[in-house]
Amino acid sequence: MTTSCRPDAAAAVDLDALPALPRDEAGPVFRAPWEAQAFAMALELHRRGVFTWSEWAATLSAEIAAANARHEHDDGSHYYERWLAALETLAARKAVVGDAELADRIDAWDRAAQATPHGQPVVLPRA
């Protein structure tokens, strides 16, 4: 016999359509520095009361569901991309960082990075 504490989650899933289960031993916690930074930013914004942890989990779940709906399957290695998308979504929804403001800043860092000689730290010119 098999029981689930949340049987409604057991929606019909075509098991054959799912990728094989990935397996691993204890790898690094974060695969790249940006993953660690994105992780820490969410924890810190929660600690400061910008959002509740339930809001966070709901937003992250929605990003993962949306990625699945776009048929972007994740073997676990794209997880922090969903995490970052959830962070951007909540920052905008909580009026902390707006979409346009963020887009402008991404452009500014992109220009600064491309104008920076190899090996030099990238710095943003003061406005």
Binding site: P33, Q37, A38, E44, V97, E101, I106, D110
Partner: peptide, 22 residues
């Protein structure tokens, strides 16, 4: 040095630091 998610994280982080949120 900066592209894709790393660029987006850098941009978001710099804005949050300026706003005193992190």
């Amino acid at each position: 040095p900066l592209s894709g998610p790393a660029l987006r994280v850098k941009a978001l982080e710099s804005l949050l630091v300026e706003k005193g949120l992190i």
